[in-house]
Design a protein around this nucleic acid. Sequence first.
DNA 1: GACAGTCATCTACCATACAAGATTGCGGAA
DNA 2: TTCCGCAATCTTGTATGGTAGATGACTGTC
Lengths: 221, 221
Amino acid sequence: MGDALEGTIALRVVVALRDDIVSMALKPGDVISESDIAGRYGVSRQPVREAFIRLAQQGLLLIRPKRATVVKKISPDGVRQSRFIRESIEVEIIRRVASHPGPNVGDVLGKLIADQEAASSANDSRRFHKLDELFHRTLARLAGVEYAWQLIDDHKMQLDRVRYLTLGVSSSQRAIAEHKQIAEAVGKGDVEAAEAAMRAHLGRAEVLLTQTIEDFPDYFE
Amino acid sequence: MGDALEGTIALRVVVALRDDIVSMALKPGDVISESDIAGRYGVSRQPVREAFIRLAQQGLLLIRPKRATVVKKISPDGVRQSRFIRESIEVEIIRRVASHPGPNVGDVLGKLIADQEAASSANDSRRFHKLDELFHRTLARLAGVEYAWQLIDDHKMQLDRVRYLTLGVSSSQRAIAEHKQIAEAVGKGDVEAAEAAMRAHLGRAEVLLTQTIEDFPDYFE
DNA sequence: GACAGTCATCTACCATACAAGATTGCGGAA
DNA sequence: TTCCGCAATCTTGTATGGTAGATGACTGTC
C-alpha cells in the first residue's frame, strides 16, 4: 500500500515514525535525534522537528531540551488509564446503541462479524485487527459520536504497542464470540447485557498487560 | 500572576495564544499569520510556527496550507461530543468513588464546596471557576485516574469558549447545590444517586449551547 | 590509583533566507 | 459594464547556519 506522497514532508515523517514506533521497529528507550532521522529520510531537520512535536503531543516521544529525544517508554499506569477512558466511552456508546437500536443494526454488525470470521480462517491477522477496530468504530458511528472514536484511537496507540508484543496470543476465536454476544444483546435492546458483554470484552486484556511487563521490563517505566 | 519566562519561547507563545483564544480575545474566524504573531511578540517565525502546530492539534487553530491560519470556529457537534466524552468518563469516575469511598472523602469534598460558597459570596467568578474545576479534578484523583482528567481538560477548552460567551448566567448557587448533592450521594455510597446527580449536573449546560448559537452565530460553523 | 576540573561534542532551540502555492486586485478586451 | 487573465503579494513549507546548554571523556593533580 504505497502511500508515498501525501501532503507535506512533515506529515510523511509523522506517519513513518508512528508506524515504526507502534510496530516496535523503534523500541521504547531508543534515542533518536533530528539530524539522525533527517539524514535517514533525506530531508531537512525542520520537518523532522515538527514531526517530533506532533508525536510528542501524542505521547510517543519524549523531547528532552538540549539533550536528546527518546521513544517514550510505555507507562503501565498510562495504559491502565487509557483503558479506563476507552471503557468509559465504549460503555456509554453501547448503552446508547442498545437503548435505541436502528432497524438494520443487526445486519451491519452481523456482516462485520462474518468478515472477521473469514479473516480469522485465512489467518490474516492484519485484516482481522483492522476489522476489529472497524467493529468498535461502527458502534461509535451508530451512536452518533464517531468523533469520540478518534479520541480513543489516539490513546489506543499505547495499547497497540502492548498488543504488538503479544502477537499470536490474540485468540481471535474468543474475540469473535464476544463480538457476537455484544451484537446479540444490542439486537435485543438489552442495555444491561450489552454493557456487561462490552465490559467483559474490554477487560480481557488486563492480564495480558501484567504478563507483558514481566516479559519486556525494559520497555516499561 | 507574572509567569513571564517558563522554558522555551514556543511554550510561552502557546500559553499566550491559548489564553487569548479561550478568553475570546481572538475570536473564532479571525485570521492570524505566523509573521503577524511573531512581530507582535517580538520573536522569530519559528517558535510561533511550532506553537501553531500544537494549538492545531488541540483543535483551536486550523492551519490551511499555503493559505492562512484561522482561529477554528466552534463546532456544535464537536461540543456535543466533547460533552459526551466528559460525561462518559465522569460518570465512570463517580461510580468508582461512590462504590469505594475513602475515609475522609466527605471532608475533602466538603471543604471544596465551602470554599466555593465563599468565592460565590465574594462574587469572585474567576476563583469560583477554578474551584469548580478543582472539584471535578479531585474526584478524578480520588478514583486514581487523574491522568484521565488531563484528557477532559484538553477537550474542555471547547466548552470553555462557549462558557465564556455566557458569563454571568452561570448561577453559581445552583452549581453549588448540585455539588452538594453529588458529595452527599458519594458519602452515603449510593452509586445510583451519585451517577444521577452527576448526569444532571453535567447535562444542565445543554440548553445554554443552543441559546449561545443563536446569540453568536458567526462563532459557530 | 582516585578524583576533580576542563573541554570537545553532542543535543534541541532559535533566527534567517528561500521556495512554492493561493489569493486578490488591477488592467485590458469584448 | 462585465469578464477574463496576469502579476504583485500574501500565506505556509522547507533548508541552513548559529547558539546555549548538557553530557561524557580526557587530562592534570593529589
